[in-house]
C-alpha cells in the first residue's frame, strides 16, 4: 500500500576522475517502500534525479554478482539488500564502491586485481592426457567425493569477500579469499590430476598470509565460507608437502609445542619457527618484553593429566609435517 513508504536518505559516493580532484558524497532523499532493494533505489535515482550516477548491475536477482558495493560500510549485493533494515539501524544509507580495487567512476571499481588472482589459481580441470575423460558417458562421483566440494560451487564471483579482506589490503602477495576457495574446489576434485602441484604452488604462493579473521565468510552473500576452505587448504598443503614455509612451520611448531606440557611454550615456538638464527633477530624485541614480562622465557608448568594429550595426539596426529 502506498502509505507504507518511508523517507530514505542516501549518501552516495561520487567520483569521476575526468573532472573531480577528490571524491564527494551526494545526498538523495526518496520516498520508498521498506522492502525496496538498494539497487532499485539507485536505479531510480539514476532514472529520475541524476543520470550521471555510474554503477554496475545485471541480473537484479543475486545471481550475477555484479552489484556488490559497500552499503553502510559492509560489502553487500545491492540487489538483495533492502533499505528498511538499513534505515532502521543507521538512519540513512551510505553507498560506496568496494574496497581493495581502484575506483573507475562512482560505484564502479576496476576488478582487474580480483580476476588476475582468480586466473592465477588456474580455475579449470587439469586432466591427464593419457587418461582422457570418457566421451561417450558421464563420469560419476561418490556422494563422499561430492561432499568434499562443500560450499565452494555456490560462488558468484561478486568480490564481496575480496573487498572485505584485510590481507588483500595489506599485502599484494595474498591471492584473496575467492581465488583460494576456487583453488580448494579443484584440489578436492577427484578428476583433477594436478592436486600436488596446486598445493605446493600455493603453500609458497601466499596461502599462509590469511589472517583467519573470517571477515570474508561474514561478507559472502552465498555462504561459500572461504576462510574455512583456506583452513582446509593449509592442512592439505602440509599433508602433501610438509611444512615448508614460515606459516606452516609455525602451525606445526605450535601443535608440537603444546604436546609436552599441554600449554604453549612461547620460547620454544619462536625457536622452532625462526630457527636459531632467526631467534637471534628477535632478541632485541624479546629483551624489551622480558623486562616487563619475565615469564616469556619461563617454561610453562605441565598441566595435570598431560599424558591424555599425548594419547590424543597418538590417536589423531599421524604426522606428515616433515618436508617431503
Amino acid at each position: 500500500m502506498a502509505d507504507t513508504t518511508i523517507s530514505a536518505t542516501f549518501d552516495v559516493y561520487r567520483f569521476d576522475p575526468a573532472v573531480d580532484r577528490s571524491a564527494r558524497y551526494q545526498r538523495y532523499t526518496l520516498d520508498l517502500a521498506p522492502h525496496t532493494p538498494v539497487l532499485t533505489a539507485l536505479l531510480r535515482i539514476r532514472a529520475e534525479v541524476d543520470p550521471t550516477l555510474s554503477l554496475r548491475y545485471s541480473c537484479r536477482s543475486a545471481i550475477c554478482g555484479s552489484c556488490a558495493m559497500q552499503v553502510n560500510s559492509k560489502s553487500r549485493l545491492a540487489c538483495e539488500t533492502q533499505i528498511g533494515p538499513e534505515i532502521a539501524r543507521h538512519g540513512r544509507i551510505v553507498v560506496e564502491p568496494m574496497h581493495n580495487q581502484p575506483v573507475l567512476r562512482d560505484l564502479v571499481v576496476d576488478q582487474t586485481p580480483f580476476w588476475r588472482e582468480y586466473e592465477r589459481v588456474e580455475p579449470h580441470l587439469k586432466l591427464d592426457p593419457a587418461r582422457p575423460m570418457p566421451a561417450d558417458r558421464p563420469t560419476s562421483m561418490t556422494p563422499e567425493q561430492v561432499e568434499r566440494f562443500k560450499e565452494t560451487p555456490r560462488c558468484i564471483a561478486c568480490a564481496a569477500c575480496y573487498s572485505s579482506c584485510p590481507a588483500v589490503e595489506a599485502d599484494p602477495e595474498f591471492p584473496g579469499p575467492m581465488a583460494l576457495a576456487k583453488l580448494y574446489r579443484y584440489v578436492v576434485d577427484p578428476r583433477d590430476t594436478a592436486t600436488r602441484e596446486r598445493l605446493v604452488g600455493i603453500q609458497a604462493g601466499g596461502l599462509w598470509l590469511c589472517l583467519r579473521c573470517h571477515l570474508c565468510t561474514d561478507a559472502c552473500p552465498k555462504d561459500v565460507r572461504p576462510s574455512e576452505r583456506i583452513r582446509d587448504l593449509k592442512e592439505l598443503a602440509i599433508a602433501a608437502q610438509g611444512a615448508t614455509e614460515p606459516g606452516s612451520r609455525h602451525a606445526v611448531g605450535f601443535k608440537e609445542s603444546i604436546r609436552g606440557a599441554g600449554l604453549l611454550n612461547e620460547m620454544q615456538l619462536v625457536r622452532r619457527t625462526y630457527g636459531p638464527l632467526g631467534l637471534f633477530g628477535q632478541l632485541g624485541q624479546g629483551l624489551r618484553i622480558w623486562r616487563k614480562k619475565p615469564e616469556v622465557v619461563r617454561r610453562p608448568h605441565r598441566i595435570e593429566k598431560v599424558e591424555e594429550i599425548e594419547k590424543i595426539y597418538a590417536a589423531l596426529d599421524t604426522g606428515s609435517e616433515a618436508p617431503k
Partner: peptide
C-alpha cells in the same frame, strides 16, 4: 588439567586434533 586451546594454529595443522 585444562590444556591450550590450540590458538587457531593447531586448527590449521590438524582440524580433528
Amino acid at each position: 588439567s585444562f590444556s591450550c586451546c590450540g590458538s587457531g594454529f593447531v586448527d590449521e595443522a590438524n582440524e580433528v586434533l
